[in-house]
Design a protein around this nucleic acid. Structure first.
Length: 117
DNA sequence: TCTGTGACAATTC
DNA sequence: AGAATTGCCACAG
């Protein structure tokens, strides 16, 4: 069993459509933890390898508010994240992603969905 | 209970 | 544009 606190976060991350990215604060907000962006990082670091609810958690679609990958450039995690993003047609320049073009803009439908629980 | 930590964010220089 | 500083607060030990 894992901490329930992270479940909402993982599920929210799973809502991010392929080819899009979201910043930590955005996920925190949607997951019901406004202002707790740092919690997202912790939650993602504890994502089960097998994924969540039978589906993988696309942690690579989560970046910081500056539109950058939050890993040291050159690190293994960094490369892995960049690869995943590029596979999903997200342009990564150095350690940056153009938020203007690739940031996820949740629909009202999805917002309501995440609020209803 | 207290303390250190953190895959952040906003501000400032 | 990039580095340093400060605020944030749940979590882990």
């Amino acid at each position: 069993m894992v901490n329930n606190s992270y479940e909402a976060i993982w599920e929210t991350v799973q809502l991010i459509p392929q080819g899009k990215v979201a910043c930590y604060g955005q996920i925190a907000d949607l997951a019901g933890w406004p202002g707790r962006a740092r919690l997202i990082g912790k939650a993602l670091s504890k994502v089960p390898d097998i994924g969540w609810k039978g589906k993988p958690v696309p942690w690579h679609r989560v970046i910081n508010s500056q539109g950058k990958i939050s890993f040291p450039a050159g690190s293994e995690q960094f490369e892995q994240q960049r690869n995943h993003l590029q596979d999903e047609q997200v342009v990564v320049i150095g350690s940056r992603v153009k938020l203007k073009d690739f940031q996820w803009q949740p629909d009202l439908t999805e917002i309501l969905f995440s609020l209803k629980y």
